[in-house]
Amino acid sequence: MASLFQRRRSKATQTERVRERRHEGFLRYANFRWAKISGGLCLLIIVSYALIDVTPRPSGGTWYGYTLGTIGALLILWLTALGYRKRKMTSDYWSLKAWTSAHVYLGLSLIVIGTWHTGFQLGWNVHTLAWVLMMLVILSGLYGVTVYATLPAALSNNRDEMTQMQMLEAIRAFDRQLHAAAQPLTPEDTAPVLAALDEDPFAGGIMARLSGRYPRCATAAALGALRLSRSSGAEAREKVVGLLSQKEAALARLRQHLRIRALLEVWLYVHVPLTFALIAALSAHIISVFFYW
């Protein structure tokens, strides 16, 4: 009986720690636990800031400012540790999803912690530099959260059960067939086909990768040229045109794949270096505060 079985299962699940029956994204993790914690923290800061009257005026130098500054600095270091946590496969129990969730929400809370720490005193100095860098890191992180939330489905739809290797393999297969099919063509028609064969699917640079536009695509050029050309035999030319348009479709799929993956990754090239710049500026800020204030 099915019910008997469910009971047996549920006993088993008690002993296993990682046991989720459904997919739950990092934003929704544990019913928005970290969103609540982070929101509560921000609220606490905003309210206490309004209630506590520090003298002579709110700034990073008051006891209240130091408290927020210490929390913020420690938080920044902890948030940076995600990069290490992600890569260090220790055997104890932890969930990277929980870490990501906390990283996102606590990272956002830094907007309040950092800004309220300044007492809204900004200027052209190393202290404000740290604040600006922090805001930029958060901004890039916000982009990351947005693409993580919106792009995976598109990535999945586009690849249609194909792996990246299979996409490349498909293009290579068309190339081999093109090579054979282009033999009967006249030299004038062969030239664009050869150029298409020489094309590196990865070439085009960062802008092409991110925009998905490849204006100098040799395959598209060859397709255009052969459609207009009348110099070779019609049958051979049609076969090549057919293969070229198949290759173009395969290329389009691969490029879209690479584009989405690039969009999912590109922000990390901003987020991570800026984090290190932030830590450097933060160190300068802390040292200068303690030694030269």
Partner: peptide, 13 residues
């Protein structure tokens, strides 16, 4: 002890 690494190491769930 921590259980399946593939699940633990997924950043997005």
């Amino acid at each position: 002890a921590g259980g399946p690494a593939c699940v633990r190491a997924c950043p997005t769930g």
